[in-house]
Design a protein around this nucleic acid. Sequence first.
DNA 1: CGTCATGTTGAAGTACGTCAATGGGGGTGG
DNA 2: CCACCCCCATTGACGTACTTCAACATGACG
Lengths: 244, 244
Amino acid sequence: MSTDCGNCPLRRDGRRFPSLTSAQVAFMRRIKAGELHVDPGTQLLMQGSNSPQLFTVLSGMGVREKTLQTGDRQVINFVLPGDFIGLQAGVMGEMQHSVATTTDMTLCVFNRTDLWTMFTSEPELAFNVTWMAAAEEHFLGEALSVVGQLPADRRIAWGLRRFYDRAEDVGLARDGWTRFPFRQQDLADALGLSLVHTNKTLQRLRERQILSVQNGDLHIMDFGAIDEMVEVDMTRATEERPLI
Amino acid sequence: MSTDCGNCPLRRDGRRFPSLTSAQVAFMRRIKAGELHVDPGTQLLMQGSNSPQLFTVLSGMGVREKTLQTGDRQVINFVLPGDFIGLQAGVMGEMQHSVATTTDMTLCVFNRTDLWTMFTSEPELAFNVTWMAAAEEHFLGEALSVVGQLPADRRIAWGLRRFYDRAEDVGLARDGWTRFPFRQQDLADALGLSLVHTNKTLQRLRERQILSVQNGDLHIMDFGAIDEMVEVDMTRATEERPLI
DNA sequence: CGTCATGTTGAAGTACGTCAATGGGGGTGG
DNA sequence: CCACCCCCATTGACGTACTTCAACATGACG
C-alpha cells in the first residue's frame, strides 16, 4: 500500500518541511511512480550505472559512497529521511557514487523524465530541487574544508554534530540523543580517517564527556564544547527547507 | 561598454556551451544587470554576507575559498570562465564561502530576484542552473574523496588534471599547456596539504616528467601516467554543458 | 636598493596509518 | 544448550607521510 502524497509522513508534526498547495500535491501524486521497501545492506544506486529513477527517502538511513579504483571508499554523506537522491544521474546521465542502506528503508520513486515536466509545470517545486542541490553543494564544501584542514577529533565532532542536527530536523533526535545505525568504519570513511584512529579518538571524546557513540546510538553530551572545536559556522537555515 | 548576450564570447568558437533560442537570448539580455571588471586580488563575494547578485564569469580566474575560525583556509574550487557563482547565497540566503580573483576578471551581473523569474518563464534555463549545481555537487564529492583518501602526489595529479580539463573545455588549454595563475599555497589549500609538502611533491612530479607548474603555466606532460595515479573516473560528459 | 611576495630547501617532530591480535555479541546449526 | 562463526569494537606496537619551523633564494616593484 503506497503512501499518499497528500498525507506524506515527512510533512507532518514538527518537521521542518513546508506544506504544498493542492495543485502541487496533485502533481506529486501524478509523478510518483511507486514506493520501494528495501532491507539493510542494499545497494540502491550503483556507481557507473544509469538509473532512470529518482528517490526521496521516506524512512530509514544509509550512505552515499564513492569507491575508488584501489578499493578505497569515501562516504560522501549519510542519507536521512527527506533526502532526495539520484539527481546527479537524473541530470548528468550517470551515477558517480553509490547509495547503500544501513537500515530498512522506504523510498518514494519518481521517473527521471518527469523531472523535466516539473520544470515546465511546477516552477516552485523545480526551484526546490535547485535549493536542495545548492544545500548539498554547501554541505560538501564544508565537509571538504573539515577533512582538508582539521585534526581527527574535530573532524569527528563536526561530522557527528552535523548528523545530529540533520536528524533533529526530521524529528529523529531529541535531548542530545539519536539513532546512529553506522559502523565506526563508515564514520572513518566519511572523515578520511583510519578505523583504528577513529576508534581511539571516539574513546577520548567519550572520556572528555563531549559525545559518545555506542550500541547504534549517538549521544551529544556537550554542545558548547563541540561548537568551540568545530571551526565552521554551524548555524542552520531557520526557514523551512523544501522536500520533493 | 557591456557585452551583448546575443554575442556572448563564451558561446563562440570551440567552446562547449550550447547556443540559445532567440527567446532565451532576449531573456538573458533582460535580466543582465550589468558587467563587472575587477583587479586581481579582489574579494567578490564575502563569507557571511548576503549578496543580492549572481555572477557568471566571462573572463579571468580566481578561487572559491572558505576560511575557518582558526584562519585555516580551504580552497573549494578554482574559478574559471563560464562558472556561475553566488547561487548558494541566491538560494540559501547567505554566503558560506568567499570568491577572490587571482587575475583581472570580467563578470556578468544578475539580480537574485530574477532567478525566480527564470524558473517561471524560462524552464530550460532554470533546468540549466540545476544542472550546474548538480555538476558542482559531483565535483565536490570527487574532491572530498581525493582529499580524504589519496596521498599527496595523487591529490596534486588529480587537482591539476581536473583544472586542465576544465580550462580546455572553455578553450584556455591546448597541447598539455594552460595558464595557472595561482600560488603553490592555493594549490596546497585546495588539496589539504601544507605548502612545503606541496612544493616538494610538485618537484618530484616534475622530475618524473608527469606535470610541471612554473611561471604561472601548467604543463601536463604525461596524461597516461596521471590516469593511472588518479583513482577516480576522469571521464567527462561529452555533451555540451549549460551556461547561464 | 630595500621591501615584499613567492618559491625552495633541510631538519626535526608528530598525528596519523598499518599491522596484528584480542574480545564480545548475535546469529545459526547441531 | 553449547559450539562455531562472523562482524565489529578495541588495544598495543611500530612505521611513515605528513606538518612545522626556519633559513635562504629569487624576481618584481617602487
